[in-house]
Amino acid sequence: HMTFVALYDYVASGETDLSFKKGERLQIVNNTEGDWWLAHSLTTGRTGYIPSNYVAPSD
């Protein structure tokens, strides 16, 4: 899985979304859904959809 880092805080707007904090590391499970990607937080262990423009590839 690709690892990304959150650029901003995001508060989930629905049950399927994943809240995260700036700097949180996320594994992308599925990024074929356009602007919303299914991600797994390496910080909280939770999985949900995130806005793709809130994250950047982590080196």
Rank of each mutant, 00 (worst) to 15 (best):
L18T: 04
K21N: 09
D59Y: 09
F4R: 04
N53P: 06
G45Q: 06
I28Q: 03
Y10A: 01
W36L: 07
W37P: 02
R46L: 14
S58E: 15
S13P: 07
S58H: 14
Y54K: 05
M2N: 11
A6H: 00
N30S: 14
K22V: 07
Y49G: 01
L18Q: 03
S52M: 09
G48L: 02
P51F: 04
Q27M: 15
L18I: 12
S58D: 14
Y8K: 08
E33K: 13
G34D: 12
D35M: 12
Y8V: 07
T44R: 03
A56Y: 10
V5E: 06
L42G: 04
A39H: 00
P51K: 06
E24P: 00
Y49I: 07
V5H: 05
N31D: 12
H1W: 12
G23K: 02
A12T: 04
P57S: 08
T32P: 09
V55Y: 04
Y8L: 08
R25M: 15
L18A: 05
L26M: 10
K22S: 07
A39Q: 00
E15Q: 11
W36P: 06
L18C: 04
S13G: 09
F4Q: 03
D9L: 01
D9Y: 03
H40S: 09
E15N: 11
N31T: 14
D17G: 14
R25L: 15
A6V: 10
N31F: 14
G48D: 01
I28C: 06
E15F: 09
Y49M: 11
V55C: 05
S41L: 03
G34P: 15
A12S: 09
S13W: 08
T47V: 11
T32F: 10
T47Y: 10
T47P: 01
L42V: 08
Y49T: 05
F20Y: 01
G34K: 14
S41G: 02
H40W: 10
V55S: 03
H1K: 11
I50W: 00
F20Q: 00
T16W: 15
T43C: 13
G14I: 09
G14S: 14
L18V: 06
H40N: 07
T3Q: 09
I50S: 00
A56L: 08
R25C: 12
V55F: 07
S13C: 14
T32Q: 14
G23H: 05
Y10H: 05
E33C: 14
Q27H: 15
T43N: 10
D9F: 02
F20S: 00
T32G: 10
S19R: 04
V55A: 05
R46N: 10
D9G: 04
N31E: 11
G23F: 04
W37I: 07
L7E: 04
M2R: 13
K21Y: 08
H40F: 15
N30K: 09
P51T: 01
V55N: 03
W37A: 03
N53C: 12
T44H: 03
S41R: 02
W37G: 00
D35N: 12
I50N: 00
D35K: 11
W36E: 03
G45F: 07
H1M: 12
D17E: 15
N53I: 10
S41D: 04
P57W: 08
T47E: 07
M2Q: 14
Q27G: 05
S58G: 10
V11P: 05
Y54Q: 05
D35F: 15
E33Y: 12
D35S: 12
T43Q: 10
W36M: 10
Y49E: 03
A12L: 02
V11L: 08
V55L: 08
N30E: 11
E33A: 13
V11Y: 10
G23V: 00
E24F: 01
D9R: 02
S58L: 15
G45C: 08
P51M: 05
V11E: 13
R25P: 07
D9A: 05
S13A: 13
W36H: 06
D35W: 11
L42C: 11
E33I: 13
D35I: 11
P57R: 08
V11Q: 12
Y10N: 02
D59F: 13
A6T: 06
E15P: 15
Q27A: 11
T3D: 08
D17Q: 15
H1T: 12
E24W: 03
W37S: 03
